[in-house]
Simulated assay, not measured.
Amino acid sequence: MAQIRELLDQSQEQQTREQLDFLLTAAKAKLDTFVTEINDIYRFPEKQEGIQVVGNRAVASYKEYRADVSQGVDSQISELIDKFFSGTEEGIKNGFVDIIKVGLQTILGNESAGEQEQHFFCIVPNGLVITRMDVKCWRYNYSSTGIIGKVKNAFCFYTSLATVNLKSLTPEEIVFFYQQLIGPDIDKIKEFIEKLKELYGFLKDKSPEEVHAMHLKQVRGLGRLNSDE
């Protein structure tokens, strides 16, 4: 599985270089389209809120394009999910990974000439917040390997992570998401939500600068504790 830019740099034939350059441009254009489509979901939530749970804005993202893809992408995206959802239970993360693997097998296992595109998203509790992760994939298969040297296909994907505004959720949805994290224990869920309300109430009147200063103070305090050890 080689990156398109690497193939372009290694190619010696002018015609192949021109074709690979065209492929590189097409993959970048598709990634730009993916970024715009996901950002539009954040930018115009009122168009989606009656249909799906929408994130506020991206807090983390990753994009990549490759050539000659057959396998291995699902494990790479799995690693991204593991990093993005560091505060999420393993069972929840594994469930989302399994969904993505099934979807990717559909697009990666399809040898038909032409393009395929897929979009996955999942809403999961991530530590103290509820988050939404989107994954958009695109693959183009060539009818033969002689079109661009030995390249059989082009593939790109974009992932984006966003927090979800609790005010946009129904009580049933809040209970549904947090019971995945805590379990079906009413008292524990109530206690957890009460603590969240207390935290949000504390942060409500704080400016971004004050919150940032509090974070720095905490980080420096942890640094001193680690140095004392």
Rank of each mutant, 00 (worst) to 15 (best):
E46S: 11
E46Y: 13
E46C: 14
E46G: 06
E46W: 13
K47P: 04
K47S: 03
K47Y: 11
Q48L: 11
Q48P: 05
Q48E: 03
E49Y: 12
E49C: 11
E49K: 15
E49N: 10
E49M: 12
G50M: 06
G50C: 07
I51N: 03
I51V: 09
I51M: 11
Q52A: 03
Q52R: 09
Q52I: 06
Q52F: 04
Q52H: 02
V53T: 15
V53G: 05
V53R: 15
V53S: 10
V53Q: 07
V53P: 06
V54C: 13
V54Q: 07
V54D: 10
V54P: 14
V54W: 02
V54I: 14
V54T: 09
G55Q: 13
G55W: 03
G55K: 02
G55H: 04
G55C: 04
N56F: 02
N56I: 08
N56V: 14
N56C: 09
R57W: 10
R57S: 14
R57G: 14
A58H: 01
A58F: 00
A58N: 12
A58T: 14
A58E: 11
V59H: 05
V59R: 14
V59D: 13
V59G: 13
V59T: 15
A60R: 15
A60Q: 14
S61F: 01
S61P: 01
S61R: 02
S61D: 11
Y62W: 03
Y62T: 09
Y62I: 06
Y62N: 11
Y62V: 03
K63I: 05
K63Q: 14
K63V: 04
K63G: 00
E64R: 07
E64F: 03
E64C: 07
Y65S: 09
Y65P: 11
Y65K: 01
R66G: 12
R66E: 00
R66S: 03
R66I: 08
R66K: 04
A67S: 05
A67N: 03
A67P: 08
D68W: 12
D68E: 08
D68F: 06
V69Y: 01
V69S: 01
V69M: 05
V69C: 07
V69N: 02
V69L: 03
V69E: 02
V69R: 00
S70R: 09
S70C: 10
S70E: 12
S70H: 08
Q71S: 08
Q71D: 10
Q71R: 05
Q71M: 05
G72D: 07
G72R: 00
G72F: 13
V73W: 00
V73N: 03
V73F: 02
V73K: 00
V73A: 11
V73C: 08
D74N: 12
D74S: 13
D74I: 09
D74G: 11
D74R: 12
S75K: 10
S75C: 02
S75M: 04
S75H: 06
Q76W: 08
Q76N: 02
Q76I: 03
Q76T: 15
Q76C: 06
